[in-house]
């Protein structure tokens, strides 16, 4: 481990101040000079341990937000901080380290079809060089957290959609990231199954992981009553502490 990346961060820790897990400062992302920016001057703080819904129509900038946090893309203007560190200043060889601190879940699960449930989750540990013993110990534990105990040896095609998403979540959190990004994780699932997934995500959040979930699903947002940030055409139009899917137009600070 390298020492704290910036003195500012070390100072903030010393003062006991809360540091934002994810911080966007006037972030603009332009993919193509001719079209509108995908994100347009977005400023946003997500605190440690927070649960945030990112809502908005397709093309409103939710996925761009996630890509910027992962440093899959570079912000055109503004700065993105993850755990106090400006991602623009992370050299490319350190990006894997950044990503180890972030779990990601997608709408289409992205499991490896030729690997069992156990192997899919173990894969995330193998590729970062965890020992066999640690893997054998950790994977069943995580599978239990997501409610898949006893399904170690199933293949992905033998599982329901909800179960497959649980495997994907297990894989995302097995390396104990501080942040979990979920890009429409319930987009392919029916409402009941979705609620099951939300319970899992909530439990992960209770354990201290910051969760950012991009979603269309109004039922879920309305039931969970968590912070809601609404994006429209790349701008934050609403930020409610305990919001619902379509809230009033007044924006309240988180």
């Amino acid at each position: 481990m390298l020492p704290s990346p910036t003195p500012a961060r070390a100072l903030a820790v010393l003062r006991g101040r809360r540091i934002a897990m994810i911080r966007f400062e006037h972030v603009t992302k332009v993919y193509d000079q001719k079209s509108k920016p995908a994100l347009d001057g977005v400023s946003l703080d997500v605190d440690r341990g927070e649960f945030l819904f990112l809502v908005g129509a397709s093309g409103s900038g939710k996925s761009t937000f996630i890509r910027l946090v992962l440093k899959e893309d570079r912000a055109t203007r503004g700065a993105v901080y993850v755990a106090g560190q400006n991602v623009a200043n992370i050299p490319s060889w350190r990006v894997p380290k950044l990503r180890r601190g972030i779990g990601v879940v997608f709408q289409d699960f992205r499991l490896l079809p030729n690997k069992s449930v156990f192997a899919n989750v173990a894969f995330a540990m193998q590729v970062i060089g965890k020992s066999r013993a640690v893997i054998r110990e950790t994977v069943p534990e995580v599978l239990k957290t997501v409610g898949l105990e006893g399904k170690n040896n199933r293949m992905p095609h033998e599982l329901s959609g909800g179960e497959q998403q649980r495997v994907a979540i297990a894989r995302a959190i097995v390396n104990k990231p501080g942040i979990l990004l979920a890009d429409e994780p319930t987009g392919n699932l029916d409402p009941t199954t979705s609620m099951g997934i939300m319970k899992v995500l909530d439990r992960i959040n209770q354990n201290g992981t910051t969760v950012v979930m991009a979603t269309h699903d109004d039922d879920i947002v309305n039931t969970m009553r968590k912070r809601v940030v609404e994006l429209r055409d790349g701008s934050v139009v609403r930020d409610d502490a305990q919001g619902i899917y379509i809230g009033t137009t007044t924006a309240a600070a988180g």
Partner: peptide, 17 residues
């Protein structure tokens, strides 16, 4: 590409990928 995509996401180093 599936495997490498996941490896990238979970923070596998360039060398391992």
């Amino acid at each position: 590409r599936r495997e490498t995509g996941i490896m990238r996401l979970v923070g596998a180093s360039k060398a391992i990928i």
